[in-house]
Amino acid sequence: MTAARARFRDLVAAEWIKLWSLRSTGWILGVGALVVIGINVNSARSNADLLEHQPATSPDGAFQVDPMHAAFVDPAYQILVVVAAAVGAITVFGEYTSGLIRTTFAAVPDRRAVLVAKAAVVAAVMFVLGAVVAAASFGATQAVLSDTIGLPIGAPGALRAVVASALLAPLCALVGMALGALIRHAAGTVVASLVTLLLLPSLFAGDTYRWAKEIGNAMPLTAWQALVENPAMDYPPGRYPVTVAEAWTVFAVWPLVAAVVAVVVVHRRDV
Score class of each variant (00 low, 15 high):
residue 22 L to I: 10
residue 73 V to A: 14
residue 6 A to P: 10
residue 206 G to V: 07
residue 258 A to L: 03
residue 169 A to W: 00
residue 81 V to Q: 02
residue 176 G to P: 04
residue 72 F to T: 05
residue 81 V to I: 15
residue 101 I to T: 13
residue 266 V to T: 12
residue 54 Q to L: 15
residue 5 R to L: 12
residue 18 K to M: 03
residue 218 A to D: 11
residue 203 L to A: 12
residue 123 A to L: 01
residue 146 S to V: 12
residue 188 G to M: 02
residue 1 M to D: 11
residue 120 A to Y: 01
residue 43 S to P: 07
residue 162 V to N: 04
residue 151 L to N: 10
residue 229 E to L: 15
residue 157 G to F: 10
residue 161 A to W: 08
residue 9 R to G: 14
residue 228 V to I: 15
residue 72 F to R: 03
residue 249 T to P: 07
residue 54 Q to G: 10
residue 82 V to I: 15
residue 225 Q to E: 14
residue 140 A to P: 05
residue 85 A to C: 10
residue 206 G to C: 06
residue 61 G to Y: 11
residue 266 V to E: 06
residue 81 V to P: 00
residue 239 R to E: 15
residue 178 A to Y: 08
residue 119 A to G: 12
residue 192 A to G: 10
residue 26 G to H: 02
residue 250 V to T: 08
residue 136 A to V: 11
residue 2 T to Q: 12
residue 7 R to D: 13
residue 73 V to Q: 14
residue 29 L to R: 02
residue 167 L to V: 08
residue 204 F to T: 11
residue 113 A to Q: 11
residue 128 V to F: 00
residue 207 D to W: 05
residue 39 I to A: 10
residue 126 M to V: 00
residue 108 V to G: 02
residue 159 L to S: 13
residue 64 Q to G: 14
residue 67 P to I: 05
residue 249 T to L: 13
residue 17 I to A: 13
residue 108 V to S: 02
residue 59 P to V: 05
residue 178 A to M: 09
residue 14 A to Q: 09
residue 74 D to C: 09
residue 136 A to I: 04
residue 245 A to T: 13
residue 133 V to S: 04
residue 87 V to N: 00
residue 258 A to F: 02
residue 197 L to I: 00
residue 82 V to E: 04
residue 209 Y to E: 14
residue 256 L to H: 05
residue 12 V to G: 01
residue 10 D to E: 13
residue 267 H to T: 13
residue 166 A to W: 01
residue 149 I to M: 13
residue 63 F to I: 11
residue 107 A to K: 08
residue 52 E to I: 09
residue 103 T to H: 14
residue 90 I to E: 00
residue 222 T to M: 09
residue 261 V to R: 01
residue 102 R to E: 12
residue 224 W to Q: 01
residue 68 M to L: 15
residue 11 L to I: 02
residue 137 S to C: 05
residue 240 Y to C: 01
residue 97 T to F: 06
residue 94 G to D: 07
residue 31 V to I: 15
